[in-house]
Amino acid sequence: MKEFRLDRLEAERLANDGAYLRFLRERTMSAGLYALDAGAQDSQGPQRQDVVNFVVSGRASMTVGQETTTVGRGSVVFVPAGVPARFHHITEDLRVMVVFSPPEG
């Protein structure tokens, strides 16, 4: 069994001084914690994998392709492979659990 705690993942992400921390990689999927502070710019481009974004905390807008929605704690947004997606208008520090299938590089 592999078990993860958000507070420990956040501490590890901060210690590695990055916005993204991959904490799981398996044959069919991978998962990571993505962090963007209020007012930050999301520079991600289209992914080669299908992606599920689960918002753990914070508030922002998210645009997937041509559609935009407001996301907050508990929001789950699916992004098909190859479709541009980004967070913007981040009004509260955003923490997102991201699941890729197949696993990211």
Rank of each mutant, 00 (worst) to 15 (best):
R95V: 04
G72Q: 15
L14G: 05
A60Y: 03
T91C: 09
L36E: 11
V98Y: 08
G32E: 04
Q44H: 13
E3P: 12
V77Y: 06
N53W: 06
G105Q: 11
L6P: 05
E3A: 15
A60R: 00
V56K: 10
Q66C: 06
M97Q: 01
R27Q: 12
Q49N: 13
D7K: 11
R48Q: 14
P46G: 11
E3M: 15
Q44G: 12
G45K: 13
L9P: 00
V52H: 00
A15K: 10
G72A: 15
A19G: 13
T69L: 15
R22I: 12
R27G: 08
G74L: 07
P103D: 08
Y34P: 00
G72T: 02
V55C: 05
R86H: 06
F87M: 13
L6G: 02
V98I: 07
S30N: 05
T69W: 14
A81Y: 03
L24N: 06
S75W: 01
L14N: 07
A60T: 02
F4P: 03
V56Y: 15
D37S: 08
S101G: 09
A60P: 00
R5W: 13
V83T: 13
H89F: 05
D42V: 00
S30A: 11
Q41S: 11
D93Q: 09
R25T: 14
D37Q: 10
A38I: 04
G39R: 01
F78N: 12
G18Y: 08
H89P: 01
G105N: 09
G18V: 07
Q49G: 02
F100T: 03
G72C: 05
D17V: 09
R22V: 04
H89N: 07
S57R: 06
L9H: 00
G58D: 09
A60I: 03
D37Y: 11
S61C: 14
G18L: 09
F87R: 03
Q66R: 12
G72Y: 04
A11Q: 04
V79Y: 05
R5F: 13
G72I: 03
L14R: 06
T70A: 15
G105M: 13
S61Y: 13
G45E: 11
R59Q: 08
T63L: 10
E92I: 01
F100Y: 14
P84T: 09
T69H: 10
Q49Y: 11
Y20G: 01
P46I: 07
T68D: 09
A31M: 09
F54R: 02
G65S: 08
S61I: 08
P84K: 03
A19P: 00
R25S: 12
M29C: 13
F87E: 01
P84I: 07
T70W: 04
N16I: 06
V77N: 05
A81E: 11
A85G: 05
V64C: 06
D50F: 06
A35N: 08
V83R: 12
A35P: 05
P103T: 09
P84V: 02
E3Q: 15
R27I: 09
M97D: 00
D50W: 01
G74I: 07
F4H: 07
R25Q: 14
G72R: 10
M1K: 02
P80D: 11
A31F: 13
M29T: 08
G18M: 14
